[in-house]
């Protein structure tokens, strides 16, 4: 029903409030994330950026003591609506976690986990099709050449960098439109960070990417738009270079210049 106006944005929140028990972690958040670009979220620890990210696929509800008001639209659909299927939301919105979390199964089964989950609900999938999906997903994250000879080995044996790439690869067969990334490089060494960043940059355009980062340099070099959050509120949202060069809000300037955080 809202498709007309809301469709311009991949993610849109309106008056979003979120409480953990009595503690309010998000305060009246209005966010618009444009399609097809990389938007980064920065801010000091505890400012609510991870909470906001985790609200966008409702994985935050796993905690049980979370209460929200307001609305979140993903691709024009209110994900808190009564007619929304959580499975569909999770299919459209892929998530990458802070620590790589491959499942304790083979590399192949990891990449195909979501694919089998969703496709097997409706039809039979041939082995040839699975192999195609497997190869193209791993190629997109620049991992194919490294792992093609050990697809049946446990994914937990890979390096952290490879694991994180694998965790991104397993989202792709489900054909999500939005990828949420929660500090995807924080567990990696500088070389791994660079490799994963480069890979994320290659995904730009095909996917809308919302990425939380602690690392301002990373936000600066690897995002189109940047959101600065503080104490549960969005303070500033703009094009990344403008936000870093000429922040409108003095709080943003203070943070960027390292006066707190």
């Amino acid at each position: 029903m809202d498709n007309g106006q809301r469709g311009d944005y991949a993610i849109e929140t309106r008056g979003l409030n979120l409480w953990y028990g009595d503690f309010q972690a998000l305060i009246d958040v209005d966010l618009e994330v444009k399609r097809g670009i990389i938007t980064s979220m920065i801010g000091p620890s505890g400012c609510g950026k991870t909470t906001l990210l985790r609200t966008c696929n409702r994985i935050i509800e796993r905690l049980g003591y979370v209460r929200t008001t307001g609305s979140v639209y993903v691709l024009g659909h209110d994900i808190f609506g009564d007619d929304v299927e959580l499975v569909q939301v999770r299919k459209q919105v892929g998530m990458v976690f802070q620590r790589p979390n491959p499942l304790p199964i083979s590399i192949r089964d990891n990449v195909l986990f979501g694919f089998r989950l969703h496709e097997a609900r409706t039809r039979k999938v041939s082995a040839a099709e699975e192999n195609d999906v497997l190869e193209s997903s791993l190629r997109q994250v620049l991992l194919w050449d490294t792992v093609k000879d050990r697809l049946n080995r446990p994914a937990t044996g890979l390096s952290l960098e490879e694991q994180q790439k694998l965790c991104i690869a397993r989202l792709l067969p489900v054909k999500p439109e939005v990828l949420l990334m929660d500090e995807p490089c924080s567990a990696l060494d500088p070389a791994g960070t660079e490799a994963v960043e480069e890979m994320i940059w290659q995904l730009r355009g095909d996917y809308t990417i919302l990425i939380v980062t602690h690392n301002m340099a990373q936000a600066r070099r690897a995002s189109d738009e940047c959101v600065f959050m503080l104490l549960g509120r969005i303070i500033e949202h703009g094009r990344t270079e403008e936000l870093f060069l000429a922040p409108e809000n003095p709080k943003t300037a203070d943070y960027i210049e390292g006066r707190y955080g």
Partner: peptide, 10 residues
């Protein structure tokens, strides 16, 4: 984290 990963995949 395994449960979370699987749930996030739908």
């Amino acid at each position: 984290t395994y449960r979370e990963a699987a749930e996030a995949l739908g």
